[in-house]
Simulated scan of single mutants.
Amino acid sequence: MSADAVREHVAAMRAAGVNQNQLAKLTGVAQPSLSRIMTAGPDKQVAAWVEAAVLAVPVPERAAAVTTDNALVPILGARRRFQALVASGYPAAHLAREMGLTRTNRTVCSLMGHRADSDGRVTQEISAEREREVKALFDRLQMTPGPSRQARRLGQLRGWPLPLEWDESAIDDPNGRPEKARWTPESAREERREHVDHLTAQGLTAPEIAERLGINTRLVERDRAHRRGSRDTESTAPEPSSTAEVHAMRELAVKARADIAARRRQPARRRGGLERTR
């Protein structure tokens, strides 16, 4: 059988970050055999079982999804995820602790984009195990803003996108780009209210939510009141017109009684049609 389909698939796997050694482990086809297939002339033929074995391994969005723990995979997606969490308010030291590392660990420095190689270059690879840890951390924290204003400020200075500005199909793609939020005041307000709702459901107090979101406590309380009012309005079914009229009449009666009582409490101001003076 022609080797063309195998070559195309191996090339796609390489582009996804799976190196030939890992592909050999995944397919069961020896690495030297794969090398010969890739370098042979256009008339190269392969056995049917080789083609079937190679094509049976799907091209992953992330190399770490299919490779062994100690395999080296591209760091790009992990770096974008890590930096996005910093931009949303999680200090690098906090994220490092979550991974069982220190802030000065070489992996953490690489995820921050610092030069960590002995030759002064920025590392472009990470172990598949660490890559999966970063993704798990991102998946857990991306919807909850972190507590650190300093971390958010660092993210702004570095121009790092926020987690929700990354599409899952783009974050691991070298050509992928974030969708910068083009918020109107109304949409920004709605997103803030959703965050307040989410954190309230987690049991956080208004001051704690205010600190996390970088807003004042009064605004948190106002957002909470707005949400309660919206839910009450949505949960109240419209009343029949007859019942609504009864309620309206009752309200008018209550108001009238209140007005009469208020006038009675006022001291007499007139005598004989003339205003009293002193």
Rank of each mutant, 00 (worst) to 15 (best):
A63V: 08
M143C: 02
R228I: 09
E191I: 03
T243G: 06
V59R: 07
R36G: 04
A262W: 07
E165H: 01
L164Y: 08
K135F: 10
Q124K: 13
A253N: 05
E129A: 15
H247P: 00
Y90T: 08
D232C: 03
R7K: 13
D139F: 02
G203M: 09
A181M: 10
T107W: 00
P60I: 03
H9K: 09
Q142I: 04
A96L: 12
R227A: 10
R189N: 12
T233P: 00
A56E: 06
A52D: 13
A65E: 14
R222A: 12
A52E: 15
I215V: 15
E165T: 00
L72C: 00
D172E: 13
G100K: 11
P161T: 05
A237W: 12
A64S: 15
R140K: 15
Q156H: 09
V6M: 08
V73P: 01
A96Q: 13
A151T: 07
A16N: 08
R276C: 10
H9S: 11
E51W: 00
R192P: 03
S169M: 06
T123H: 05
M13I: 02
R140V: 03
R103I: 07
E194L: 14
W49L: 06
R62K: 06
T104N: 14
T233L: 12
A96P: 12
P42D: 12
A5E: 13
V86I: 15
S230G: 11
K44Y: 06
G155Q: 11
E179M: 11
I209C: 05
A96V: 09
G120D: 06
S242V: 15
W49R: 14
G272R: 11
R36V: 07
V29P: 11
R97H: 07
T107E: 08
I37Y: 04
N175D: 13
R265E: 12
L23E: 10
R7P: 09
S230Y: 03
T144R: 15
S110V: 00
A128S: 14
R115N: 01
G214F: 07
D119W: 11
L252D: 01
E61W: 04
G203A: 10
R265W: 01
A56I: 06
T104R: 14
V134F: 10
A244D: 05
Q20A: 01
S110W: 03
A206Q: 01
A261H: 09
L164T: 09
R212D: 04
T200H: 09
P58A: 09
A30T: 06
R212M: 07
S88W: 06
S242H: 12
R80Y: 00
T200F: 04
L95V: 03
P32N: 09
S33H: 12
T27N: 07
